[in-house]
Design a protein around this nucleic acid. Sequence first.
DNA 1: CTGAAAGCGCTAACAC
DNA 2: GTGTTAGCGCTTTCAG
Lengths: 335, 335
Amino acid sequence: MSTPRLTDVAVRAGVSMKTVSNVVNGTGSASEATRARVRAAIEELGYRPNVTARRLATGQTGTISVAVSSVTVAYFAELSNRLDQAARKQNLRVVIEQTHGARTNELAILQERERGLVDGVIFHPVSLTPEDLAGQRPGFPLVLLGEGPAPATVDHVMIDNVAAATEITRHLIERGCRRIAFLGAERSGLTHTTGQRFDGYRTALRTAGLRPDPRLRLTVDHYSADNGFRVVTAALEAGIGFDAIVCRDDALAAGALHALHTRGLAVPADVAVAGWDNLIISRHLWPPLTSVEPDKTAIAETALRLLHDRIGGYEGPGRHEIVAAQLLERDSTDR
Amino acid sequence: MSTPRLTDVAVRAGVSMKTVSNVVNGTGSASEATRARVRAAIEELGYRPNVTARRLATGQTGTISVAVSSVTVAYFAELSNRLDQAARKQNLRVVIEQTHGARTNELAILQERERGLVDGVIFHPVSLTPEDLAGQRPGFPLVLLGEGPAPATVDHVMIDNVAAATEITRHLIERGCRRIAFLGAERSGLTHTTGQRFDGYRTALRTAGLRPDPRLRLTVDHYSADNGFRVVTAALEAGIGFDAIVCRDDALAAGALHALHTRGLAVPADVAVAGWDNLIISRHLWPPLTSVEPDKTAIAETALRLLHDRIGGYEGPGRHEIVAAQLLERDSTDR
DNA sequence: CTGAAAGCGCTAACAC
DNA sequence: GTGTTAGCGCTTTCAG
């Protein structure tokens, strides 16, 4: 027995396809008697609507996709989750896709190699270059997340990285730190996001009359706790002295804490540590981690609103929205 | 200008739809000359195939979905990621869906309210009861993950929880721990998974001639670091003494560590702590966390293999595969 | 190697 | 309130 279709239900219930369709979707109207008959037929046959066919007919999918590098990066997991929750309220279904940070995968999203899968996409690129994005004018509803370069044509949600980085660095300076390292510069040139955070860090140093020391710019390959651990361990072994670390994100910070503990250094007494993203785990690290918290709920809701407009047909120029970020002070910088 | 379709390309290239289809999909054959013409037409028109239509025509989607409670639960994020990577190798696309652990959402997956979205699903239920699953015979390719109750008709991948729990508890006993708490029993009755881990824990205690103390069974609402922190803090304040904690998972363990540090207790000297899942972060907690590591890659590959069979038409009885789990000893129990 | 035509399962006009 | 019919954009026999 092949799977039952709408027609089968219609025949069984002795009504037309249209009526069945109405009952299934709650559209149009039907007498309570026929409704019952139709529902009975559906039940008996085990009928399930075929979404693909519906999508083809309506051109709408009721689904959006969230594309991030990897859900194993806690920040993306948490952000995807907020997007999912916000979308659910609007009866939108969310599927999460991983790009693994690969430029080819990211380009594939931009070029929409395939059409019709989803109504729109919310995309946080990490490897795309300004050139990749320049002049892009996607033929489908798209909202970009993060501080990467966004063309004027595309909607974009970000936070004010420079301001937050300045604030977190000043916070450390106020607590008496003088040799403040920056952990998370990419070996292969700064990404946009990191660049902004680094700028804010330098600005705060300069404002306080401190001179940025290039040796305190700690370079990583990935934003992972593993890498943070290795890099900070290496820096300590190399005898580079510092009394604070501004970490590009909390995963790196977790590794940094581990490295400091392993070397027997006290946090924050010997070295204060601050991170970024305020991950769920961050308040349970030891000591609890001071972190910049981007308002993830606001990011999700803003992105969804922009996407909703696009899906609704808005074709105006790209809108760039800046969402709040807040410094959460915890023990790792309390000195 | 509406979006170009296959016909438009065909007209432009002066060939038939079939030929364009061949070129796009690499099927059939076409002379190099026509190929070039078709490709040029595609380029000029900006044509992108419509997956929905293709899906409807072929009945295949080339996509599977991975349904987990939430990607903010690090274990699920890491598992989903492995599944994604394993599937990619087979040219399968993976979308991740969240159920938020809600029974209605989980039931919806089982009942496949909608058809045609994906070729199959790999599903880790958390709220489904044995009754929900009993007698289920899904009309679509499905593989269940985790230690929940699986009907004999459905494929299932799990680890040997009892054995691993016994091992981890024995490990603590060998290190001199005598009052070993179990953190993670659910307030509303043990889930299957927790039940197995608790069984293993008790078995090890009994084997060693220790008597399980009900006061050492620490009850939680969620498997989160927050909850672990609160529950362990409360237990310490209540004066419940223990020299080790077996945690149902690493998230709870992270909270437990935080609680112990906050109360000024030394780990592992005063209290040893062990967890489950070996999350990416676990080795960077302080002290690095001893953890049971389910072989996530093996879980992913096994699940995918089973699903592949089902998609290929296998209709035999459910297969239940047990994947290895390994105890990773780290400093949190090194005493 | 290429073309014409019949679906895939559903929705949405438009009649009745 | 209910039925008929023409697509949605693609793949795929089956001829040519």
